[in-house]
Design a protein around this nucleic acid. Sequence first.
DNA 1: GTGAAAGCGCTAACAA
DNA 2: TTGTTAGCGCTTTCAC
Lengths: 341, 341
Amino acid sequence: MGAESAAGNATIDDVARVAGVSRAAVSKVLREAYGVSESMRDRVNAAIAELDYRPRTAARAMRGRTYTLGIELSDYGNQFFTKVLTGASAALEDSRYQLMIAPAESGPSAGSRAIDSLLDRQVDGIIAISPLVSRSSLERIARSTPIVMFGRHDTSDRYDTVADDDVAGASAVMDHLLGLGHRRIWHLSRDELATVPEDNTPHGIRLQTYLDAMNRAGLADNIQVRRSGEGEHEAYLTTQKLLGELGPPTAIFAGHDALALGAMRAISERGVDVSIAGYDDVPIASHPLISLTTVSQPGELMGARAVTMLLERLAGRDVAAHEVFVPTLVMRDSTRPPASL
Amino acid sequence: MGAESAAGNATIDDVARVAGVSRAAVSKVLREAYGVSESMRDRVNAAIAELDYRPRTAARAMRGRTYTLGIELSDYGNQFFTKVLTGASAALEDSRYQLMIAPAESGPSAGSRAIDSLLDRQVDGIIAISPLVSRSSLERIARSTPIVMFGRHDTSDRYDTVADDDVAGASAVMDHLLGLGHRRIWHLSRDELATVPEDNTPHGIRLQTYLDAMNRAGLADNIQVRRSGEGEHEAYLTTQKLLGELGPPTAIFAGHDALALGAMRAISERGVDVSIAGYDDVPIASHPLISLTTVSQPGELMGARAVTMLLERLAGRDVAAHEVFVPTLVMRDSTRPPASL
DNA sequence: GTGAAAGCGCTAACAA
DNA sequence: TTGTTAGCGCTTTCAC
């Protein structure tokens, strides 16, 4: 009948008193630091359990770590990032670290605001899944907080990167479409900010690969790049408009699956026969009613790797790591030979 | 050429020095507290801008607020919650508060662990989108931190709730299916933990409404409730198995759209004619190739309301608020009269 | 192996 | 209106 079992309101002093040791000793046990006898550790742990003690993150942050890894996520509607999250979360399962996601509104500066808010909260490391941040500000951040850029192909020696081989993935799509006999192939991409060449963004590289493939195939005149905001709905509207203006192509390569689904919606409503390929292999892509040809990235693995990169940095690594994963083309019913063949 | 423009490393003391005022004065300006002359405010703000000062959340947490609202989210793959997030995030747009999402792994205690980690970080308020937490522990938490339960129909006087009218939504689905002439209607639900009656969970209520409707229609013998883990894939496997065992029904009412999509996948692969209805109206439901009959909830509004409830609590409200939103049945191609008619 | 004590950067009484 | 001051709960030297 422990009077006021303050469940969660105990401080480190309370634990020290109950265990009959000093505050410093408790702190050491908490951090699994060196120089604690077994008997002391047992007594301290017993006191922690008895008092239901939980260290306040804020107080820890004043002197040491927060045991928090932050993820900046702008396009949280994108199901691919769900996989990444799952992988990241699973990689932290048995560690003392906790994941916190800072959702970023859309807009050019939203990503860096989310990152700033993560820094305000002194997270121990950051995974940024938004390419709209300048290299220089990333390097400034990286001086004090380890950060891994997800998706970018940068090779800064200050921050780490995790990406898939977008050249390989996009090439596979283009080879597939060209191989089927398509000549009028459009590319549906994100807005200009998302494809700035210097930023080495996924969408920038996919776009460039499309252009290269078309040029190499002698189809420069058929090049047609259309920009769309992120999200299925925007892609739907863009495609709808474009179909009205130009009439249907025989195939569309969309920068990612959400865009592909939007294009599919417009195509399907209009009742024309257009092949569509996407990128990411989100769960719905394999649905028999959708059956979208797309490029599969090992999202869980990538998310897990991003986390371990951060943990390695926290453990002392001070050289940059850059890892590129291999994507796979998944051929489904949404791509067929053009009707005119 | 400001030597070391420590961008983000300045403290409140630095600001005070540069502005030529006391630390307390700066603090007041930061918190927009009472009793600051205009000229002082201007000088302080100038110094803040000059030093690129940002208050450390940890230090604030030691004495006051963290200006952080936490969201506990277990099923982050569910697109409905994307809408909720968007609404919540937008409602905070111009405020000093920041949203942080603590992703919860699946499993019975994952939700409360995520909530605990939010509490460790002293968020100012919590939105919990996971029903697997006991009422009593919620009430204990609510004593120190405002919390709003999303989706639950509890009426505790200690914490707030935001939900849709699941009885109305599920009734609309059942009326629709029965009206079309269906008699063999299955219900695809979540696992038992997600439907504990005392917890007043969405899935518990939808299930009960299904049972009531079947009984009222004199179809007690046709009742068939099947459990599935969360997520499309689990629902697919469950449905596949069930079809093999019992042969197809004429209609399936799924507890939410992810489950409906999984059922659709199994149905479609098997090539049988079964009507399917879901719940939530996730974006893909309206896709012409899917065209899923479902129940639309005003997710953005609900997310925004959850946030304002928290802000109201922080502003002093101390009576509980419970808000129920009205869902709408959206009829699409996935529901038709049974073939036998 | 253990403990005493300083101090991280803020907020909020309280004094002036 | 403004400034002084006492902590918040931890981590981390540095003695012992």
